[in-house]
């Protein structure tokens, strides 16, 4: 057993090593791309009333007068010491900004995905066990509706109904209503931090604030998950091993979950990983609609302002996140399916 654990640790380490070239590539490409963007940040930040001299001065201050390779070396050197630079638009170090905003985005995405899985997977399983029934049709309608409505529309519609008409939702501004104090920062996830502090009221407040944006995102991500669950369950249920299990008299529950569902999980996990990555990048619309101080809206604002350090920081942060995500998914595969040797990859 100890040997197996050791093997697993070694495998994880080797996977991380394999990710290094990817991360380096991301650093290089994000650096070059931001430089290739039209617009001159020096002119932008020198202000409207700038003279050529003040622009040059700003440029020197930003280090943009140096040659590209020089700028890159300085950037990489700073990166290695954990310094992502200072965001020009907010005046804050990029690391601080990311540390504050990334948990906000992650919290939103994760809650949305948990809700989405909680609905989509049972729905897909039910639809697969009764193909052609009303539940199958309901599944299809819900899923198609969810994916065909753009998130900003769903978001606005939800605000209109639950905040404006019914008045059950709090005002859709930010992560926490101003009547609550932010919980002491431990993880940056308000739900977790509030629970750790034992502050139930704040926890509830954060949850209320989170409900609508999370529901918007969840609705959007239902479709791929439910569809994949249904398809994977259908093929598992018509497989030979399920027939064997039925012929052995195993109970419906055992056949469904012990045999079919575990085999169907693999494609579902794959889809979940894909959905996670695209929502994390694409939830900027939801963040905008709900004034959510997340990483997506931050990145878009930085891009518009040619805020190099912030954009690079965002891209790098996303790359690292995806590397970690892929690692987690691969480990989940190895756990579900013994045929996939994790160490062998």
């Amino acid at each position: 057993m100890a040997a197996a654990t050791q093997g697993r640790v070694a495998a994880v380490l080797s996977r991380l090593m394999q990710a290094l070239p990817v991360v380096f590539g991301v650093v290089l490409v994000s650096f070059l791309l931001t430089r290739a963007l039209p617009g001159d940040p020096a002119a932008y930040f020198a202000g409207d009333a700038a003279t050529p001299e003040s622009i040059a001065e700003t440029r020197a201050k930003l280090g943009l007068d140096k040659s590209m390779p020089e700028q890159f070396l300085i950037y990489v050197g700073d990166l290695l010491s954990g310094d992502l630079g200072v965001s020009l638009s907010t005046g804050q170090p990029v690391t601080t900004e990311l540390a504050r905003r990334l948990p906000a985005s992650l919290e939103l995405t994760l809650v949305a995905l948990v809700v989405s899985c909680g609905i989509a997977i049972p729905l897909g399983v039910l639809a697969a066990t009764r193909p052609g029934s009303w539940i199958d049709h309901l599944c299809r309608v819900l899923v198609t509706a969810g994916v065909s409505l753009p998130t900003f529309f769903t978001g606005v519609a939800l605000i209109y109904v639950f905040y404006y008409l019914l008045g059950v939702a709090p005002s859709p501004i930010g992560r926490l209503d101003f009547v609550y104090l932010e919980p002491d920062r431990v993880t940056g996830f308000f739900l977790i931090d509030a629970a750790l502090a034992g502050d139930f009221e704040t926890w509830l407040g954060a949850l209320e604030q989170l409900a609508l944006p999370a529901a918007t995102l969840a609705l959007f991500t239902l479709a791929p998950l439910a569809r994949m669950t249904r398809a994977a369950m259908l093929s598992a249920l018509s497989s030979d091993y399920v027939r064997t299990a039925k012929a052995a008299g195993l109970t419906t529950g055992k056949v469904l979950f012990g045999y079919a569902f575990r085999n169907a999980l693999l494609p579902v996990v794959t889809t979940l990983g894909m959905v996670f990555s695209f929502t994390l990048g694409a939830n900027v619309l939801v963040e905008k609609v709900f004034a959510w101080p997340g990483i997506g809206s931050f990145a878009v604002e930085a891009l518009v302002a040619s805020d190099y350090a912030a954009v690079q920081g965002f891209v790098l942060c996303m790359a690292l996140l995806f590397v970690a995500l892929n690692l987690v998914i691969d480990m989940a595969y190895a756990m579900i399916d013994p045929r996939i040797g994790f160490a062998a990859k």
């Binding site: 497989s239 030979d240 091993y241 064997t244 039925k246 012929a247 052995a248 085999n263 399916d337």
Partner: peptide
């Protein structure tokens, strides 16, 4: 099923749950 009448199938590898 399984206690009174049992069945064995063709293609034994596919007839077993691959991940159990």
């Amino acid at each position: 099923r399984g206690r009174e009448i049992s069945m064995i199938f063709q293609n034994p590898r596919a007839a077993l749950n691959p991940i159990r």
